[in-house]
């Protein structure tokens, strides 16, 4: 059963200065470079997540937005320990799981479950639905579950499916139904935290709305928290209490949903909001104004990660990387323009 394991207001999930780097150098032969009569073998490192900190309270929905390659999915995978973090700390319910191995992660996985983007790839095609959705629970109980069938049925009912679906295989379902199965699977251990990585982006609009409603109903019923990862601004606005905006592996802005949408501070957040198509408005003057593309995560730019595309960049942005600093009202921004010394002329 879910329940408070530690008292007080300790966050359910806390991530501190998380770094995730991947070595993509390949073998020695691939790495060899000849220049100026010298031979070298430089490593190629992808800096996927760069010093990200975040926290989620019980019952809270934190949305992470950003474009492809911004590190949002890697962040999710690292938090559930599908990647071994390079540096930083991950705490669940106050327990530091950063260096937990597979065995020690087992009990932790009962608190934290993941829903994946692709409902076609995330279900085993050879398993029946009843086995798919019960797997995390069986795993957590050591396989000894007498009332298996009843539990499976109860889970399916929660996500709007029924008895007739128990003995079917994934290919017999539509995309929306498969996503429901994935959700049922994550519910089986009654987790405290659900990490959802683009759970609706593979679905049609009308089905998207069904799944979003389901996720919100389940949250109301079970009181769990979401880390909700998406590139879709209208979805993140709908579901999140707070939002974090990522760019090139950095968290560039965080704050309450309403504030992020009504008073975005970081130039990237503003550009992102301006670019998002709005129903019934013609292509606005601000849309498509943000030129250029996301730079490579292998050779991170010096200074601010956004400076090459930023319309407001100035000399300091190329020199110094801005830190994510609070600007009041629960909002934090990583931008030199918003640092107190500049924002406040009196200082």
């Amino acid at each position: 059963m879910s329940g408070t394991r530690t008292g007080g207001n300790a966050p359910l999930l806390e991530v501190r200065d998380l770094e995730q780097r991947f070595d993509v150098s390949g073998g020695l032969i691939d790495r060899l470079r000849f220049s100026g009569g010298r031979i070298s073998a430089p490593r190629r490192i992808v800096h996927a997540v760069n010093g990200v900190s975040l926290s989620i309270r019980r019952g809270e929905v934190l949305g992470i937005v950003g474009e492809s390659g911004c590190g949002k999915s890697t962040l999710a995978k690292t938090i559930v320990k599908l990647n071994e973090p390079t540096a930083g700390q991950i705490l669940i319910d106050g327990e530091d799981i950063t260096h937990h191995d597979f065995t020690r992660m087992r009990p932790v996985r009962r608190k934290m479950q993941m829903i994946f983007q692709d409902p076609y790839a995330s279900l085993n095609p050879r398993q029946k639905v009843r086995d798919i959705i019960m797997e995390p629970y069986l795993e957590s109980q050591g396989g000894n579950v007498p009332d298996r069938a009843e539990r499976a049925l109860a889970l399916l009912a929660k996500v709007g499916l029924g008895t007739e679906h128990l003995d079917r295989y994934p290919h017999q379902f539509s995309g929306g139904q498969r996503q429901r199965i994935g959700i049922a699977r994550s519910l089986s251990v009654q987790p405290d935290l659900i990490i959802a990585d683009e759970p609706v982006s593979a679905l049609d609009v009308s089905i998207q709305a069904q799944i979003l409603n389901l996720l919100m109903d389940l949250k109301d019923e079970f009181g769990f928290s979401y880390l909700f990862i998406t590139h879709d601004l209208s979805v993140v606005r709908h579901i999140s209490d707070r939002i974090g905006v990522m760019y090139l592996g950095f968290m560039v802005e965080t704050g309450p949903t309403r504030t992020i949408f009504s008073a975005p501070r970081h130039p990237y957040t503003r550009a992102l909001l301006a670019a998002a198509p709005q129903l019934g408005t013609k292509l606005g003057p601000a849309a498509g104004q943000l030129g250029g593309e996301v730079p490579s995560a292998i050779d991170l730019p010096r200074g601010c990660p956004f400076r090459q595309r930023c319309p407001l960049a100035f000399a300091r942005c190329a020199e110094e990387r801005p830190a994510l600093l609070p600007v009041g009202g629960g909002q934090s921004v990583a931008c030199h323009l918003d640092e107190p010394a500049i924002a406040d002329p009196a200082a």
Partner: peptide, 23 residues
């Protein structure tokens, strides 16, 4: 109506009006 709308952010999060069933 299935598209989450700007006004959602004000006040309580409303349920999206959904089209029931599947294509």
């Amino acid at each position: 109506d299935s598209i989450p709308h700007e006004s959602d952010v004000d006040g309580a999060k409303r349920r999206l009006s959904q089209i029931p069933g599947n294509v």
